[in-house]
Each structure stands twice: as structure tokens, then as C-alpha cells.
Design a protein around this nucleic acid. Structure first.
Length: 774
RNA sequence: GCACGCAUAGCUCAGCCGGUUAGAGCACUGCAUUCACAUUGCAGAGGUCAACAGUUCAAAUCUGUUUGCGUGCACCA
């Protein structure tokens, strides 16, 4: 293996060609070059917007990777795309800022950490809150460090001095300020209502974190006295506080408003019959049991009719004392036993065995979600703020309709609009430790501690009422802290990352007054938000809502959403399938450039990317092609000087091409070259990275190498055309390196520093060169 | 149920605001090669652009229908 240091000074005089052959290796060795180049770039301050002080600002806020593991190939996609955009902007002379970050990623990280604990035979529920937090923090910070190294390894040209972490105290302060503002505006509120509860993770989840799956279950037709009703969940019958029929259903008119006597497995009981529109007379027998504690629709009915709420399933998914002999059983076992008991008593009229319905599951662990009635904090998305008069969803919809924030792929605008028009309030409380604790305190009350809401002695209807005078919400804790206790919940992590663009810039501005006196004013709104389409609702939509709310401006002007990375058979990558491509492994084996190029090639905005080792290898070959074409040019240009005795470096000012004496081949390549500059520029402006990359590949390999370089061999041997050919070669090559640089930053820089040895007037680095114009 | 997307070479995908022989990468076939690069070069094979109908002088590209695949959202006693 030949290792060629990037900036090796070429020796002059003597048998120059021989030395060249020695000093520029025959094959491009990325390993010898990439790490050193990155260090050099970072030290030189090339990645700071200040490198182009007069340039127009151009900003991308990096989607902060979750600091809970190594980077995967999906991260490599965003690094590649965003780095292309940023490097292109920088080459155009813009004050390009790519602000990096890391996300504590609340629930995500907590579940990763929980798995780790499980392996160690520990459980998060047996570790005190503070210690669990500290351990998770340590774990997160370690991962964050690894991740930062990996981003560098992939060539991410971001400004590390401006890096932010979602748990930085100044970031947290901004998150708190927003929450307090929302609270005072009436848009953040506490309510008791059914939430999606994961019995494994012991926390509630938002609508988006519940994945629905079709399932086939038996549908039991149960006798309720004179009535028969259909249910898939007989075990919840102990929580029934009414039976409902449709008000217009003629069959049941005589029962409405009465109490019927029913036989249950526990004996005889009386139950109210109510009429409610929610009952579909067509379904089953048109009779519904109302179990307010365990079904969101039933809860609404209970609210309308003032029904009692009886909890028969606890937070662990086990039956409570109210289930009598079934207490302590898990849901499915209870269902089996209850059904059996009912059958014995002849209470089951019939069973439809193949009833298809869908059940909600925790997106992380697949545990069936149980609705639970809990006091939680919500963000009102469809309500007008008392003070600001802003409406989150409506404003966010309008901004996209007006084109203030533009989706590069139109289909995502449709999806976004559809969601935004049907959006519901957002549950932001999570019953976990890892995250930003709610800045909410409740007044300590001797008789009614915080848990009062769960107290069964209370009048059930008071559950719907929360006394605001007993709640304190503020960035700072209350003065008489001894009279208050803080809410133990933390924010949904998307509540903090939803504020990321403005929070990161505002924090930077106050943190580093000298370096970044006007970062927020200068770089906000940002130019592009580039992320995966799978988090369009989780993140993009929330950023637009909160960004508009807090700053009055959209957080970004363009939205580029990339897809999933799949293997060559279009399969999703997963550890269990064993088809995972480790981006760092690939970078070490074939070079970061090869990985990047492979990720751009043949992919387009909004569509999934397909990658395979063969493809990466092909792109490694392309890096080598760039290396060798340059090797040829450097070699032959200086070799000519040996003949005439001129061995000194060629000056860039000497590279004025004699336009009158161009050969047909010269003309052709100049034409191609001009076209490629135009085309690549246009494509990059339109976010068509794949197109731009493919055209460059085609041009460089086939037009420049196969055709022109081949013709140049003869031209260089001819004294009449020799000088002009050298000039054409150097011009075309050096400009091609600039065009290629956003895609393959390392090899272009490695070659550029060699080229500078014969053209000292080239900029000191291709990173800060001038984008060619025609 | 509502909405959205996709069907182009053996494989994975571009192209699609209509206009010359439909492109790329990988794979395949034949030949070449000490002179930048075998991580190479040259030549080549391979597609009725899902089906049907329509608009047009002209359709892979626009419209409609059908079929197949996929995705999002909602409901579900």
C-alpha cells in the first residue's frame, strides 16, 4: 500500500517524471488522506460562515442525531445531502452555516438505555430517578462524542464551534420560555383524559407514536339482561357504567333511560341504558357497553352523560380489585377466563371468531396500547391564543399554502396539509425520567396531594376539573418552593426539537456574543430543512408550528425530505435481516467519498435510496478515476517542461487559452465543460443532487477522461498544440474538481493540493474556491 | 373508509411543465491493453416505457378507466 500524504511538496528538477511516478500513487488511497484533510479544514476555519464575510447568509440546521448510538446509513444520507448543499453554497461565496447538534431524544434514548439495563439484569424502575438520569446522561454524552467523530469522518462541513445539545441549559431555558408563553396564552393546558399508555414503558405516548395493526379476534355477543351486545374485550365489563343504544333505534326505545337488571359472572347487577349518537345501529345488535376508563369513545360518552369511571385495568395491564376473582390477571388471560366463566353461565349468545379490527401498539416495543385516564399536559393546536391570537395549526397550514415554506417534493405538501387540517391536540407529557422536566409545580395540599386526581374517594366528576390557582408554570421555580412540588413528567422530546432552529440560533447568539453577535437575525429563517420523510409530522410540522408561534417566521424556506435507505433488493435494512450497511465501515473500506457518491447516485427527493456494496465499489472506482486523471495531467504538464528545460511551476496567469488555435477536441471539451457548469449549477439550485452527480460522473469519466485526455496525448506530443493543450487540461480539470467537490470532498481536495504545486495561484483549498461561472 | 404515491433494460433507479435513434449504475457478451488508471479502455447485446381508451401533427411524458404493488390518515362495540 502506498500512502501519499495530501500536501506533499513535489521535488523540482532532476528526473521529474520519475519522482512524480513515485510520489503520486497509482491508486487513490483514501485512508491516507481523509482524516488529515478534515482536521486541516476544521483548523483553517473553512466551515465557518465567517470565511465568506461578505457573502449572503445560507443556513442549514442539522437535524440533531439522537445521541444514543452510532451513526447508521440513514445519517449518512443526511450528511451527504446537506453537505452537498452547504459546500455548494460556500463555493458560491455565501456565508454558509451548517449548525450541528445532538438530541437527547427522550423516549428513544430511554428505551435504548433500558435495553442496555435489561442486558445487565437491571430495570429502570428499580433505580432512583436522579441516578437513572445521571447514568443516562453519561451514556448519552459518550455516544454524542462518538457521533461527532463519525460526522467528521463522513466529511460533514459544519461549524463545530456553534454545536448545540438539546439539554444545554440555555436551550432548555428557551424551551421553558416557549412553554410558559403557550400556557399564558391558553394553548398549553392540563387535562384529564384518555391517553395512549404503553404498559411496558410505563408512559403515555402521542397519537403519532401509536402504530395500528390489523388483528383477527373473536367478537363476543354477550347477554346483558334483555339486551345482547358485541364486544372484543369482555374482560373490561367490570368497568361498564352504562349500556348505550342509538337514540333513533326503534328496537330499544323502551329501555332508554331505565335501569336494566343483568346477570354477570359476579352475580346480578343493575345498569343504566342511555341513548347516544355514537352508537351505530348497524353494528352488532346496535348495543354498546360503556367502559369509560378503557375506551376513548366511551370516555366521551361518559362525559356527556355524567357517568362514573371505573378503572379495572391498572398501569401494568393487570386487572384491578374491581375485577373480583380476576384481579391480578393480565389482560389476555383475564379475557380468556372471563369469557369462559360467562360461557359456563350461559351469558354468551354467540362468538364470531374472525372479527378483523385494528389495535394500537407502541411503536417501540409493539405492546398493545391501553387507553388510560390521566392528568397530562397538552398543546392546543386548533385554538386561538388568548394573548397572541395565533392558532398553531392554522398558521402552519397558511405558511405552506402561501409558499413561505416550500416542500421540494409536492406530494409531501399534500400529506402535510391533510394532516394539518385534521390535527388534534398534542400530548406532551411523558412519564419517563430522561428528558426536560416540565416547569410546572402543584401546590402541596394536605388533603389533596397531587395524586388527588387518582383518588377514588373523590367525586368522580371532579376529575374533569383542575384548579388553575394550584398550578404554577414558570421558567424559574416558585418563590415559596416549600409549598410546591414539581411535576415529575418530562416533555415529549419533539416539543424541544420542534423549537430547534430558532433555539439553536438564539442560544448561539447569546452564548458567543463576539463570534455570533447577530446569528439569529442573520441566519433565521434558515434556507433548508433536510430530513427523513418519516418524521414529517413528528418534527417538520411541529417546527413550523412552534417556529411561527415563537418567531413569527417559518423556521426554514425549503423542505427537502429524503427516504429510507434500502438494499439492492429494495429491502429495508435491519439488524435481524443482516443487510445493514455500516457507513463508517464503508468509509474505512472504500472511502467516505465513495459512500457519499453511492448515496446520491440514482436517488431523488422523496424517494427511497438504494445502495449496495457493488454500487459503492463503483463509486470508489470513480474516486480513483479522478485521482488518476489528475495524476496524468500533473505528470504530463510538468513533463513537457523537462524537454524545454523549464521545470518551474506553471503560473495560473499563464493559463490563458489561445482561443484562435483550438483543435476540434479542445473545442469539444470546452463546449462540454461549459454545458456541465450550467447544468450542474441549475440542478443544484433545484435540489436535483442525483441528476447533478450523475451528469458530473458521466462528463468527467467519459467526456474528459475517455475522449479529451485521450486526444490530448497526441496534442501534447505536437509542439504546435502542446502549450494550449496543457492550459485547457488544467482549466477544465481544476474547474471540474470544484464542481465535484460538494459530492466527493476528499479526493477533490487531495488532488487539488497536488495541482496547486504546478498552479500556485489556485486557491489554497478547493473548499473555498470560486464556483465556476459561464 | 379517506387521501397519496409507484408501475421504464436481468437487478436498482433516473427521465415525465409532450418533440430527434428512451438513459445511468451494477450484471452480461466479445475484443484490447507494458506508454494516468485492470479500481482500465473499445465495441456490443438487452426495453411494444403495466393494460386499455382519449387529447394532439406528435405521448414514457397530459386526461380517464382498469390491474398490480406500496404508503399515510381515520374508524373499529
Amino acid at each position: 500500500m502506498h500512502h501519499t500524504p495530501p500536501n506533499l511538496p513535489l521535488l523540482r528538477g532532476g528526473n521529474y517524471r520519475k519522482r512524480m511516478m513515485k510520489e503520486i500513487a497509482k491508486t487513490y488511497d483514501h485512508e491516507a488522506v481523509e482524516k488529515e484533510l478534515y482536521t486541516k479544514w476544521e483548523k483553517s476555519g473553512y466551515f465557518k460562515p465567517e470565511i465568506n464575510p461578505k457573502g449572503k447568509p445560507y443556513t442549514i440546521i442539522m437535524p440533531p442525531p439522537n445521541a444514543n448510538g452510532s451513526l447508521h446509513v440513514g445519517h449518512a444520507v443526511f450528511v451527504t445531502l446537506e453537505d452537498i448543499m452547504i459546500r455548494y453554497a460556500r463555493l458560491q461565496g455565501k456565508a454558509a452555516l451548517w449548525l450541528p447538534g445532538a438530541d437527547h431524544a427522550g423516549f428513544e434514548t430511554q428505551s435504548v438505555f433500558e435495553k442496555k439495563l435489561e442486558k445487565e439484569g437491571r430495570s429502570r424502575f428499580s433505580i432512583p430517578r436522579e441516578r437513572l438520569y445521571d447514568e443516562t446522561l453519561k451514556f448519552t454524552l459518550e455516544n454524542k462524542k462518538v457521533m461527532e467523530g463519525q460526522l467528521r469522518r463522513l466529511g460533514a462541513s459544519c461549524d463545530w464551534d456553534r454545536e448545540k445539545f438539546t439539554l444545554d441549559p440555555d436551550i432548555v431555558k428557551i424551551i421553558y420560555e416557549t412553554f410558559v408563553k403557550l400556557y399564558e396564552d391558553g394553548l398549553a393546558y392540563r387535562d384529564v383524559r384518555p391517553v395512549n399508555w404503553c404498559t411496558k414503558h410505563q408512559t403515555s405516548l402521542s397519537e403519532l407514536e401509536v402504530k395500528y395493526e390489523e388483528r383477527v379476534d373473536p367478537l363476543y355477543y354477550i347477554k346483558y339482561g334483555p339486551l345482547t351486545l358485541a364486544t372484543v374485550r369482555p374482560e373490561t365489563k367490570f368497568g361498564d357504567t352504562a349500556v348505550a343504544v342509538n337514540p333513533d333505534d326503534e328496537r330499544y326505545q323502551k329501555y332508554i333511560g331505565t335501569e336494566i337488571e343483568i346477570e354477570t359472572v359476579l352475580g346480578f347487577a343493575k345498569i343504566k341504558v342511555i341513548a347516544d349518537e355514537m352508537v351505530d345501529p348497524e353494528f352488532g345488535n346496535g348495543v354498546v357497553k360503556i367502559t369509560p376508563a378503557h375506551d376513548p369513545n366511551d370516555f366521551e360518552v361518559a362525559k356527556r352523560h355524567g357517568l362514573e369511571i371505573k378503572e379495572v385495568i391498572d398501569q401494568f395491564g393487570k386487572m384491578t380489585d374491581k375485577a373480583g376473582p380476576f384481579a391480578g390477571l393480565k389482560i389476555l388471560e383475564a379475557r380468556r377466563q372471563v369469557a369462559e366463566a360467562m360461557e359456563k353461565k350461559g351469558l354468551i349468545e354467540k362468538i364470531e371468531p374472525d372479527y378483523t379490527h385494528s389495535v394500537g401498539k407502541c411503536y417501540k416495543c409493539g405492546t398493545v396500547i391501553e387507553p388510560r385516564i390521566l392528568p397530562q399536559w397538552f398543546i392546543a393546536v386548533n385554538k386561538k391564543g388568548i394573548k397572541t391570537k395565533k392558532t398553531l395549526a392554522k398558521d402552519a397550514l397558511a405558511a405552506v399554502n402561501k409558499g413561505e415554506a416550500k416542500f421540494v417534493t409536492p406530494k409531501f405538501a399534500k400529506i402535510y396539509k391533510h394532516w394539518m387540517t385534521n390535527i388534534r391536540d398534542w400530548n406532551i407529557s411523558r412519564q419517563i425520567v430522561w428528558g426536560i422536566r416540565l416547569p410546572v409545580w402543584y401546590r402541596k395540599q394536605k388533603e389533596n396531594p397531587k395524586s388527588e386526581i387518582r383518588n377514588p374517594k373523590q367525586n368522580q366528576n371532579s376529575k374533569f376539573k383542575i384548579q388553575n390557582s394550584d398550578i404554577y408554570v414558570g421558567v424559574e421555580p416558585p418563590q415559596d418552593i416549600e409549598n410546591w412540588e414539581q411535576d415529575t413528567d418530562v416533555f415529549d422530546t419533539w416539543f424541544s426539537s420542534g423549537q430547534w432552529p430558532f433555539a439553536a440560533l438564539q442560544a448561539e447568539e447569546t452564548r458567543n456574543k463576539k463570534q455570533s453577535p447577530n446569528d439569529f437575525g442573520r441566519f433565521y429563517p434558515t434556507d433548508v430543512m433536510e430530513t427523513g420523510w418519516d418524521i414529517i409530522f413528528f418534527w417538520v410540522a411541529r417546527m413550523i408550528m412552534l417556529g411561527l408561534y415563537e418567531t413569527g417566521k417559518v423556521p426554514f424556506k425549503n423542505i427537502y425530505l429524503h427516504g429510507l435507505v434500502r438494499d439492492k433488493d429494495r429491502q429495508k435494512m435491519s439488524k435481524s435481516k443482516g443487510n445493514v450497511i455500516d457507513p463508517l465501515g464503508v468509509a474505512n473500506l472504500y472511502g467516505a467519498d465513495a459512500l457519499r457518491m453511492a448515496l446520491v447516485f440514482g436517488t431523488s427527493a422523496g424517494n427511497d435510496a438504494v445502495i449496495s456494496e457493488e454500487k459503492i465499489r463503483g463509486m470508489r472506482n470513480f474516486s480513483n478515476k479522478i485521482w488518476n486523471a489528475s495524476r496524468f495531467v500533473i505528470l504530463r504538464v510538468t513533463m513537457g517542461d523537462l524537454k524545454t528545460g523549464q521545470t518551474g511551476p506553471i503560473k495560473i496567469s499563464d493559463l490563458k487559452i489561445d482561443q484562435k488555435n483550438l483543435t476540434a477536441a479542445d473545442k469539444k471539451i470546452i463546449k462540454n465543460h461549459t454545458e456541465i457548469i450550467k447544468s450542474v449549477t441549475a440542478k443544484l439550485d433545484k435540489f436535483q443532487f442525483s441528476q447533478a452527480g450523475e451528469e458530473l460522473y458521466e462528463y468527467f469519466w467519459h467526456n474528459l477522461c475517455d475522449i479529451y485526455i485521450e486526444s490530448s496525448k497526441a496534442q501534447l506530443d505536437d509542439d504546435k498544440t502542446k502549450e494550449n493543450t496543457k492550459k485547457v487540461l488544467i482549466k477544465v480539470l481544476s474547474e471540474s474538481l470544484i464542481l465535484l467537490h460538494p459530492f466527493v470532498p476528499f479526493v477533490t481536495e487531495a488532488v487539488w493540493s497536488e495541482l496547486r504545486q504546478i498552479c500556485p495561484e489556485l486557491k489554497e483549498s478547493v473548499v473555498i474556491a470560486d464556483w465556476p461561472r459561464v
